[in-house]
Simulated assay, not measured.
Amino acid sequence: MLSLAAAAQEVSLRTVQQASSTVKYDPDGPPQKPGLCMEVLHAVEKADPGLHFTGLEQHVPLKRVERLLGEGQVDAFFCLLKSPERERQWRYSPVPLYVIRHVIVQRADDARHFDTLAELAAASRKKRVLVMRGTAIARHLVNADVAIAEVGSEREALQMLTMGRADLIYGQDINLQRHIVDTRQNDKFKFGRTVFQEEPQYLALRADLPPAVEERLTQALRKLEKDGTLRQLADRYR
């Protein structure tokens, strides 16, 4: 349970790391680059030294992160996109942490251009567009009648693209760029020329988190937004 020592103004908040999302959390990466969301978390602790996060030894997949938040078993989680379904289950701090862009990745020798979701929908009738399993961005494709195939990771999607089992990956620019660099096969892939949508990532909070605690978190994030820390952290991972 959330513990609040009024005299010392110490607040302990339960959280977790998201597994298989190395841009957000990279426990095997260098200490100076542990993942963008982990760095935002530590920046919040520095901005308000009375705030502490526990549970970071746990690495859980996105679907379990959502379940833990919805059931109130974690108090806060860095970072999640908003969606109507998610907003029915938990709250969000209003301060955007960083922005992701919806883009496509193609094989480098694919000369086609896709400027609209309608064009993606037409192409998906031959081969489904790959999207990461469990991500909130998939709903944009489904709503636009794009036929999708969900995969477990960006790495798996790039492998399928290489083998010709798919022609297009739709996802977050920052994640796809990281995995393309990691494969050391930059010459095999290219980004499409269109940004289909931009969306901010937020701090998600359990539905019944005390308002006073939410306010402290929000004030810490506003401080980091104002002094440029959030922007600087995001730039390090692009």
Rank of each mutant, 00 (worst) to 15 (best):
L2H: 04
L4C: 04
A6L: 15
A6M: 13
A6N: 11
A7Q: 13
L13A: 09
L13H: 05
V16Q: 05
Q17E: 14
Q18R: 14
A19L: 13
S20L: 12
T22R: 15
K24M: 13
D28E: 08
D28Y: 00
P31R: 11
Q32D: 14
Q32H: 14
P34F: 02
L36A: 11
M38N: 13
D48A: 14
P49I: 02
G50N: 04
G50Q: 03
H52I: 01
Q58V: 01
Q58T: 07
H59L: 15
P61E: 13
R64A: 04
E66I: 14
L68C: 04
A76I: 01
F77Q: 12
L80H: 09
E85D: 14
R86V: 10
R88S: 13
R88H: 10
S93N: 11
P94Q: 13
P94R: 12
P96D: 04
P96L: 11
P96S: 09
L97N: 06
I100W: 00
V103Y: 03
V103G: 07
I104Y: 02
R107Q: 14
D109Y: 00
D110W: 01
A111Y: 00
H113P: 00
E119Y: 05
E119A: 14
L120F: 02
L120Y: 02
A121Y: 02
V129T: 09
V131S: 13
V131P: 01
T135A: 10
T135D: 05
A138S: 11
H140Q: 13
L141E: 01
V142S: 04
A147Y: 00
I148F: 02
I148G: 04
G152R: 12
E154F: 03
R155Y: 03
A166T: 02
L168A: 08
Y170P: 05
Y170T: 07
G171E: 01
D173M: 07
I174K: 12
I174S: 02
N175A: 15
N175L: 11
L176Q: 06
L176N: 06
I180E: 05
T183C: 05
D187P: 00
F189Y: 14
F191M: 13
F196E: 01
E198M: 10
Q201S: 07
Q201G: 13
L205D: 04
R206N: 07
R206H: 02
P210H: 06
A212Y: 09
V213Y: 10
Q219G: 04
L221M: 11
R222N: 10
L224M: 10
D227R: 03
D227V: 04
R231V: 09
